[in-house]
């Protein structure tokens, strides 16, 4: 797994590549927790390079999303494809979160 972030005005775009699985999910969660601790509150998670997410990754996302909710923050997703898109659909994440095709369309709509 590889994670980078960039700032677009008040929104932090986090690009995650590779796999969020039982081994890497804690690292993903810590990365986002640290950004929240720095005061960031709005996130777009760019998943265009993400091949794979397991329940451990879903769990991390739910933990972060619940935390952001209590801090008046927001989390959005962009660029889902393949198995990741399928897992999001199966898990009901499409009704839980706003999901966009790309960062550009996310930025235009939030």
């Amino acid at each position: 797994m590889e994670i980078t972030n960039r700032q677009e005005k008040e929104i932090t775009i986090v690009a995650v590549k590779g796999r969020i699985d039982g081994i890497t999910a804690p690292e993903f969660e810590t990365y986002l927790s640290e950004l929240i601790a720095q005061g960031r509150r709005s996130f777009i998670i760019n998943c265009s390079g993400l091949e794979y997410i397991s329940s451990a990754g879903l769990r991390s996302i739910l933990i972060i999303a619940k935390r952001l909710k209590t801090e008046q923050g927001n989390i959005y997703f962009s660029g889902l494809k393949g198995a990741v898109e399928e897992v999001f659909k199966i898990s009901g994440f499409y009704s839980l979160f706003k999901i966009y095709d790309s960062d550009a369309s996310a930025l235009n709509n939030i």
């Binding site: 769990r59 739910l62 999303a65 619940k66 909710k69 839980l96």
Partner: peptide, 11 residues
């Protein structure tokens, strides 16, 4: 919704 959703049990 996000408030009541359980974090685990998806595996």
């Amino acid at each position: 919704d996000i408030d009541t959703r359980q974090i685990g049990g998806m595996g």
